[in-house]
Amino acid sequence: MGLLDRLRQRLTRTRSILSDGISAIFRGGRKIDASLLDELEELLYTSDLGPAATPIVAELARLHKRGDINGEEDVRDTLREILLSKLDQTPSEFDFSSTPMVILIVGVNGSGKTTTIAKLCQRFADQGKSVIVGAADTFRAAAADQLEVWAERTGADIVRSHKDGADPAAIAFDTVEAAVSRGKDVAIIDTAGRLHTQKNLMAELEKIRRVVGRRVANAPQETWLVIDATNGQNAISQAREFTSSVEVTGLLIAKLDGTARGGALFGIKEALGLPVRFVGTGESVELLEEFEPGAFVDAILGRIE
């Protein structure tokens, strides 16, 4: 079974509420009219599409007026097309040419940063790359221990401090330093979870970036924001604030294995246009997939192929 199939299967293993909802709206052979479109708009909210739902429904209304859409199937197909067009992105290639490639991982508390890093380690190791991780989360109790366990399991090196409250920028610097001297391909820096509204903590991230850039030019080449797929409209606010503090270059969507579908992504895309790098689809360490817009949209629409 290919990667894509696995993703599809995982994402569609429960029927989506949106899909059931669309069926319910059309029950009894209802025709498309203003009130049905209203209901459809509300329904789109169930997938955390939020305000992004409004222009989508407006487009459906326009097409209906033109006579292009006439029933449930048309609505489903057109929805798929519209959603897909909103996720348009160039394939998530990133550049390994300058080593070490330094990746900074940021996100709010509990979004799944450390677990996602473990998965990234596994993935890069599987591609034959040597990896070092830096435990720059010096705030949460035992965060470094957690990362160390993962580093051991995935065969990555780790740079960490053994005392609480060490300077995260110093650890980030040491990680890059070690990556250079040990000739590692990839250095991944784990940072403490922080709510995007905390100014001083966001400033701390900027400092980490600066310090890392002092050791290796252009580093960090990638800064990835981890978004919890169960988050609602607040995810857009997170993306906006993190992007304005540190140049976020991509998104990682974690926890897509539940019943939430990460619909807030559409709002993020619309506001910031960030590419999605990977999606986490389960607890075990190999469950990290490359983002595939088609599969993502099918999961939201509950289409099983």
């Binding site: 909210y45 169960t230 609602g232 539940g258 939430a260």
Partner: peptide, 28 residues
Amino acid sequence: DAMTGQDAVNSAKAFDERLSLTGCILTK
């Protein structure tokens, strides 16, 4: 998590079915 979106309903319902919840705490 206070940032939870629409899915809060699904998870809360499921936990409530399997446990006899006596209350909730909203974080973050």
